[in-house]
C-alpha cells in the first residue's frame, strides 16, 4: 500500500524543478507574511497556514496540465499559488479588499479562481469531494479531457461525503484524483486515534480504486504519484486515492497552543523533513542549482511578496452597495 520510491523523475526538466522550488518558496514566504500581518492585527477573522506542506500543493499541481482543475480546503493558500493565482489578489482577499479574489466577501477559506481551474477552497471538511466529482463528470460528459484534483486533509476521510464521493467517482470511472494531505492532526485530533487502519489510502480498496501512501515532504515523489494518477484518470481508468504524509509546522489556525503534540515532534519534522530544505539541497547536490541562485530566488520572492502586500494594503474596501451583489446570478 505504500508508494514506490521516486525513480529520479527523469521527465522533469531542471528548469521545471527550479520553478517548483521557487513556487514552494513563494508559498512559504506568503504564509510568513500572512502570519505577520495577522499578528499585527491587519487581517481579521482566521487563517490556516500550510507552512510545511508546500511539497504536496506544488508536486501535485505541478503534475497537472493547465486545463486541469482542483478543489481546495480551508488550508488552501498553497493550492492557489501552485495553480497560478496572483498573490496580490490573494492578500487583498485576506485583507477583505475589493480587489481580492472574492471581492472581499470570501476571505482565506473561500479563495477561488475559476479561470485558472481552481474551483475554490472550502470551509466545510470534505465539502469539496462531491463538487470535484461533479466537475470530473462534466469533463467526461463533454469530453473535455481535464482531470480534477480534490485536495483534503486526514480529518475529511471520516466524513460521509468522502466515502460517498469515492464510490460514485469509482463506479462512473471519473477523472478525479482524491489527494489527501495527511498532516497527522484533524485540528487537535491525532489521526491515529481517529481511524483504525494504518493508512488512509487503504480505504481506496473499498471503492475499487488504487490507493497509495507517499512521502509528502518529497515534492518529486508527489509529482510522480500524481502524474501516474492523472494519466490513469485521463485515459478513462477512473479515480485514484493518494495519501501524502506531511505536517503543518504551525498550529491549526490562529490561537492554537498546540497542546495535542510535542515541541520535540515538531522539531523533528521542521529540522529533518522540511520539504523546501530537502528539495533545495537535492537540487544543489544534483548541480541543478547553486547556493547563489538559491539565495537570489529567496530575495526575489521576498520582494515579490512585499509588492503583493503593497497592492493589497493600497486597495479599496468593497462598497456598501456590494453587500447584496452576487447572491443570485
Amino acid at each position: 500500500m505504500t508508494g514506490k520510491k521516486t525513480k529520479g523523475s527523469q521527465d522533469i526538466t531542471p528548469e521545471k524543478k527550479v520553478e517548483m522550488l521557487e513556487q514552494m518558496i513563494v508559498i512559504r514566504h506568503f504564509e510568513q507574511k500572512v502570519e505577520q500581518m495577522f499578528m499585527q492585527g491587519k487581517i481579521h477573522g482566521t487563517m490556516h497556514l500550510c507552512t510545511g506542506q508546500e511539497a504536496t500543493a506544488v508536486g501535485a499541481i505541478g503534475a497537472l496540465e493547465a486545463k486541469d482543475k482542483i478543489t481546495s480546503t480551508h488550508r488552501g493558500h498553497g493550492h492557489c499559488i501552485a495553480k497560478g493565482s496572483d498573490i496580490g489578489r490573494m492578500l487583498a482577499e485576506l485583507l477583505a479588499k475589493e480587489t481580492g479574489y472574492c471581492k472581499g466577501k470570501g476571505g482565506s477559506m473561500h479563495i477561488a479562481d475559476l479561470d485558472l481551474g481552481n474551483l475554490g477552497a472550502n470551509g466545510i471538511v470534505a465539502g469539496g469531494h462531491p463538487l470535484a466529482t461533479g466537475a470530473a463528470l462534466t469533463s467526461k460528459m463533454k469530453k473535455l479531457g481535464y482531470v480534477v484534483i480534490c485536495f483534503f486533509g486526514d480529518g475529511a476521510s471520516n466524513e460521509g461525503s468522502f466515502h460517498e464521493s469515492l464510490n460514485l467517482a469509482a463506479v462512473w470511472d471519473l477523472p478525479v484524483i482524491f489527494f489527501c494531505e495527511n498532516n497527522e492532526y484533524a485540528m487537535s485530533g491525532p489521526i491515529k486515534e481517529m481511524i483504525n487502519i494504518e493508512h488512509i489510502s487503504q480505504r481506496a480498496s473499498s471503492y475499487g480504486m488504487p490507493g497509495v501512501t507517499i512521502n509528502g515532504s518529497d515534492v518529486l515523489e508527489v509529482y510522480e504519484a500524481t502524474k501516474e494518477a492523472a494519466e490513469r484518470a485521463r485515459s478513462g481508468q477512473g479515480p485514484t486515492l493518494i495519501e501524502a504524509k506531511t505536517y503543518r509546522f504551525k498550529g491549526h489556525s490562529r490561537a492554537d497552543a498546540r497542546k495535542y503534540r510535542t515541541r520535540e515532534e515538531e522539531k523533528e519534522w521542521i529540522t529533518k523533513k522540511d520539504p523546501i530544505a530537502l528539495f533545495k539541497k537535492s537540487l544543489i547536490d544534483e548541480g541543478v542549482l547553486s547556493e547563489e541562485k538559491a539565495q537570489a530566488i529567496e530575495d526575489q520572492v521576498q520582494s515579490f511578496v512585499e509588492k503583493a502586500q503593497g497592492f493589497a494594503e493600497n486597495s479599496p474596501e468593497p462598497s456598501p452597495e456590494s453587500l447584496q451583489e452576487d447572491v443570485y446570478a
Binding site: L114, T133, S165
Partner: peptide, 26 residues
C-alpha cells in the same frame, strides 16, 4: 444512461456532484 444517470444511494455525493457539474458548464 449517460443523460439519465441512475446513482448510488448517496444523497450528499449526488447532490454535490450535480452542483460541481453545474459549476463547470452542465
Amino acid at each position: 444512461p449517460e443523460r439519465v444517470r441512475t446513482t448510488p444511494i448517496s444523497e450528499a455525493a449526488i447532490t454535490g456532484c450535480a452542483i460541481g457539474a453545474a459549476m463547470t458548464g452542465m
